[in-house]
Simulated assay, not measured.
Amino acid sequence: MVYKYLTFSISIAIISWIVGMTINAILRKTAFYEKKLSNLNFIKSEKHNKIIGIGLFKWIVTNTFFKFFNQKLKLKKKIEKTDLYKLRNEMTISEIDHLIGFLFVTIFALVKLFNSQFLFGWTIMLVNIAMNLYPSLLQQENKRRIDQLLKRLS
């Protein structure tokens, strides 16, 4: 039974990536995106990121097959300021894609929880956190690092 819940959770999380990309493509054309969404920062402290395991998640992403998922998020050996702006923009797009996906999957989890299917709902949320929330938080951390580098280059 848990296998069925896990399979559904992974499937809906992957589908949420497509939903996130689609909705984000529409949102990018609005002023709201530039003013509000492009500068989100939920966890500002490196200490808090370390506590919740972003470092371990980062290691998993860089050292497993996940590193092949978004090739636009790679930094070249020679760093130019324009490349950093492009990279930051791609990170913002990826971050918002994952946040929209997180909200999409959260709806499914809440429906299961309200229907008293607690194990199913919590399984969905755990997979959702791993496949949508953590990637978004990792992008936020990387954007902060890029912002610091851009400040030093200016």
Rank of each mutant, 00 (worst) to 15 (best):
A13L: 04
P135M: 04
I15W: 04
N89K: 13
I14C: 10
E80Q: 13
G55C: 05
K44L: 01
K67F: 02
K47G: 09
G55W: 09
E141M: 07
N70S: 11
N24Q: 14
S94N: 09
R152P: 03
K50W: 10
L150D: 13
S38N: 11
R145D: 01
N115S: 15
D97R: 06
I52D: 00
N24F: 04
L103Y: 09
L40R: 11
F102L: 11
F114I: 13
G20T: 02
Q117A: 11
K58P: 00
L87W: 10
T64D: 02
L110V: 13
K143C: 05
F108L: 08
T106R: 07
S116A: 15
I12L: 07
I60L: 14
F66D: 00
K44S: 04
F66N: 03
L27T: 05
I107Y: 13
I93F: 07
F65S: 05
D97C: 07
P135N: 02
F8L: 15
L138C: 00
K47T: 13
F102N: 02
K81Y: 15
G55P: 09
I10F: 07
M91N: 07
L126R: 03
Q71Y: 10
H48L: 15
L110N: 12
W122A: 11
I129K: 01
I146S: 07
K143A: 03
N24G: 12
T106E: 08
N115E: 15
S45P: 04
Y85R: 05
F68T: 12
N24A: 10
I124Y: 03
K143G: 06
F108S: 12
E80G: 05
I18H: 10
F104D: 10
I124A: 06
T22C: 12
Q71E: 13
I146M: 08
Y5F: 15
F8K: 11
E90I: 01
K67I: 08
Q71M: 08
L27D: 07
K77F: 13
F108T: 05
I52M: 03
I15T: 09
F114K: 10
K29F: 10
T22V: 13
K4C: 02
R152M: 13
E141Y: 09
G101W: 03
K29H: 14
L126P: 00
Y85M: 05
I129H: 01
T30R: 02
K81R: 15
V19W: 01
L149A: 06
I146L: 11
P135R: 00
G20F: 01
W122Q: 12
V61L: 01
N142E: 11
N89H: 14
T62M: 10
S154I: 09
R144F: 02
N142H: 07
W122K: 10
K74P: 03
F65M: 04
L87M: 14
K58W: 05
E95W: 03
F114L: 14
F32P: 03
M21R: 10
L113A: 08
L138G: 00
K47C: 01
L6F: 12
S154F: 11
L113P: 01
H98A: 08
T82D: 15
N132R: 05
